[in-house]
Design a protein around this nucleic acid. Structure first.
Lengths: 209, 209, 209, 209
DNA sequence: CCCTAATCGAGACGGTACGTCTTGTCTTTGA
DNA sequence: TCAAAGACAAGACGTACCGTCTCGATTAGGG
């Protein structure tokens, strides 16, 4: 959501802050009921009890609106402390799968990713609002793994970032593919098998590169 | 594409087989130029030199059409024989990344996946036409790994299928996420690191489950 | 309906004569149910149990088909012998009104007249098939009036034709307007008043021109 | 054209009054060039420089639009004062014939009458907007005839209305039939003969009913 | 306490695509 | 050769949404 510049004219009627929240909530509600392609901004405005003008004054279009509406959903992710690295990873992956099981997250996210293949600004907005924002979980997890001695300490910062990116791609990609493409739920069994594969690869990879 | 039932009435003018191919090619062309959201079936029909009715007679809508148009792209994948399992995997993953780097594949695939979150028939069509169809690569790869002794023989058929599914989710998901979400190319370096992670996990997982 | 030329090639499968009648009947049936604007040639063909091709082979379009279908309706008109000119006229006008009360006649006739304002060939077809064909009633009526001495004998053949045309315009026009535009039925009362006006004008006109 | 109810919500952008006029003018223009059956609302909208939605917001379809477009044409009729009843009638009938000679009037009027045979609301709209509206000419003419002593005063109001209706059916019907069906122009000669017939009938009818 | 200016709701506007329908032609198989 | 069946190119249908615009009606400061 675009924040108003601080030096903005302070005169005139200020924008309603309630409208912002109402619009994002209405967007998620409409995504659940209608999906991406049948979601219309006019309908979102009506649900939010707001005029179309009010919506367009804040967002430039459907893509940007849905990115913001979906991004909020992923902020509730956090790395649990279950005692072992494997258990921690399983926990956060299950949380991620739970969010993706919600229809507004699944269809909203996939749709904006699809649109972003032809819109660099949108891709950047997705990266900033969603991807980079959650990469904190990987860093925190590895940090905890090193503290516990479950992972060897990573010294090279460049190599460290590269590995974090790879892990994030593997985790996020695999869960999304399992949930949305294969069509099977990412349940506890699957998450346990996936975590074993991932950790096995990580340990093997760092032992004898 | 729906094949006509064999006992279909053989009367009337038969459907043009050239039109089928022209429509799918035009669809890919339009996807490249316009992307998913600006692709219109009227435009596809015009590009294919075909009336809209001809298009609607064969496909029920944009979703189904694009699934078929994209599915053809993935049929050119094949498992190369580069001497080692790791090299073979790297080869096929690179091919997969190359296809996903084509805009018609990327935006078409993501868009229909997004739509499939609210349309079970569409999800099934995607699974049948694309996912299950390419899972052959995983099976073939493991078979070759076992022949070469790089992988321990898998005896339990149920466990075997479960692992194949997991591998496919990890491979396809990671490459898609890398290419489309993270926004970095899935180049040779990344593919090598990813393959190492995957193979490490596989070997570790089968040695001490 | 285009009649086959007598020296036509007698080879090949002959055209079905039943089809002609079936198509005209189906056209009237469809006119009753659907009216002019929703009548489609495909539907007529289906009702007649005939392929569209067969229909187009005989008529060049909707206009021509409906002219032929409607023209048949007016052939059942005849001048009754009720003893006096006034009664005879009332009788035939009531018959005419009865035909126009049938929806297929009313809407078919008005529609082709509307189309004929921009299609001279169609106007000619209407005149030949419907108007001139029924003008016999006027001539026969005047002839009978003169025989009975109710009308003075008309000697000038040019003047005679002019008057016949005028009478036909007045009779046909007034009944059509009453029935279709004013929206009131052309019942016995109205027909009596109209006939009185017409006969009064005719007698007055011939007495002191 | 539907007038907005006076208690209508005064909120929102008001409808453009220029659009109304532009659409009706464009309709007449298109009727002249294309006739009824080839007139499309999309084309009318384009000619009027207006979106299709704007047109459909005001009229429910082709029929209603053309009724309004044609009705305006007949408002220019007026009863001239030429000194005698016969001359006055001849004058207004000639005016009427002149309007019917314009293609937009002829084909538009006939077509909506044809459609009205299957649409009571449309028939009522035609009666209200065109027929009843012009019946004023008959009333005015008879009034003037009575003032001049050319017609006996009519006392029974019911009988009076019945006669006015009859006269209107005869006049309008005969002119339309002459112009559109018989295919001959309603020129001065014809109008003079017709007026003589009509007036003769009227005088005869009122002298000895 | 009013003034000013940006906001709000409502809804009409010009466009554009939709998915369906009809037209008149063409291409099959079968009689 | 014609018939039936139905696919074909073309194009209008009436609807829905888009993103913009014009309204009158609120709201806050700031004077």
């Amino acid at each position: 959501m675009q924040s108003r510049t601080p030096d903005r004219r302070a005169t005139g009627r200020p924008r309603s802050t309630e409208a912002d929240a109402a619009i994002l909530a209405a967007t998620r509600e409409a995504l659940v009921e209608l999906g991406w392609s049948k979601l219309t901004l006019g309908d979102v405005a009506t649900r939010a009890g707001v005029a179309k003008t009010t919506l367009y004054r804040r967002w430039s279009g459907k893509n940007e609106l849905v990115v913001d509406a979906v991004a909020e959903l992923f902020d509730e992710l956090e790395l649990p402390d279950r005692g072992s690295l494997a258990a921690d990873i399983e926990g956060v992956v299950l949380q991620f799968a739970a969010i993706l099981a919600r229809p507004e997250a699944a269809c909203g996210l996939m749709a904006v990713v699809a649109e972003s293949t032809r819109d660099d600004a949108l891709r950047e907005r997705i990266r900033t609002s969603i991807v980079e924002r959650q990469k904190r979980l990987v860093l925190e997890g590895r940090c905890r793994g090193e503290e516990r001695g479950e992972l060897p300490p990573q010294t090279d910062p460049f190599e460290s970032a590269r590995t974090a990116d790879l892990i994030f791609d593997v985790v996020a990609g695999a869960v999304v593919h399992r949930a949305l493409v294969s069509g099977h739920p990412a349940d506890e069994d699957w998450v346990r098998a996936f975590t074993a594969l991932l950790l096995g690869g990580l340990v093997a990879g760092t032992q004898q590169p």
